[in-house]
Simulated assay, not measured.
Amino acid sequence: MQTIQKRKSFLGKLIVPAMASAVLAYFVVSAKTGQYGSEAKVAFSRQLAVRNAVYSELLAKRDALERRVRAMKDGTLERDMIDENARRALNVARDDEIVILR
């Protein structure tokens, strides 16, 4: 009875570590540059700062509008406020008036 012996190749021992290191490299690159990686975190923080600035501007505008509405709602409408709102809405001024736009 004859047996055929195979010699184990050197490359056969490297297949599993090579595949494992390729998978590990994929996850490392993904953690660095992926959609939720460390570089994306910096971009998200910049975007958050910009949106917080826009949000604070909108809050200031809202407060100003709420103050104007409260001034008109309290039952004692001033003639100046009514006149100012009508002129602004209709875009009208008299010849002897000076209009200062802010």
Results as ranks from 00 to 15, higher is better:
M1D: 10
Q2N: 15
Q2P: 11
Q2S: 11
Q2K: 04
I4F: 06
I4E: 07
R7E: 09
S9I: 04
S9F: 14
F10H: 13
F10C: 10
F10N: 08
F10L: 05
L11H: 13
G12P: 07
G12T: 01
G12H: 02
K13P: 10
K13C: 13
V16C: 10
V16D: 14
P17M: 10
A20S: 12
A20E: 05
S21A: 11
A22R: 05
A22I: 13
V23S: 13
L24C: 01
L24M: 08
A25E: 00
A25Q: 09
A25P: 11
Y26E: 06
Y26Q: 11
F27A: 11
V28D: 03
V29N: 02
V29I: 10
S30Y: 08
A31V: 03
A31C: 03
A31R: 05
A31W: 05
K32L: 06
K32R: 08
T33V: 12
T33E: 07
Q35A: 04
Y36V: 07
G37Y: 02
G37T: 05
G37R: 08
E39L: 03
A40E: 07
V42C: 05
S45R: 10
R46T: 14
Q47R: 13
L48H: 12
L48Y: 10
A49G: 06
A49I: 06
A49K: 05
A49H: 07
A49P: 02
V50M: 13
V50A: 12
R51C: 10
N52C: 03
N52L: 02
N52Y: 13
V54M: 05
V54I: 14
S56F: 02
A60K: 04
A60R: 02
K61F: 12
R62L: 14
R62P: 03
R62M: 00
R62A: 11
A64L: 14
A64S: 14
A64F: 12
L65G: 00
L65I: 00
L65Y: 03
L65W: 08
E66P: 06
R67Y: 12
R68N: 02
V69I: 15
V69G: 06
R70G: 03
A71E: 06
M72N: 12
M72R: 01
K73Y: 13
K73H: 14
K73G: 07
D74W: 10
G75T: 03
T76R: 02
T76A: 15
T76P: 02
L77S: 14
E78D: 07
E78P: 07
M81W: 14
M81F: 11
I82M: 10
I82F: 05
D83W: 01
E84C: 12
N85Y: 00
R87Y: 09
R87M: 13
A89P: 04
N91K: 04
V92K: 08
V92W: 00
R94L: 00
D96K: 07
D96E: 09
E97D: 15
I98D: 05
V99L: 00
I100K: 01
I100V: 02
R102K: 12
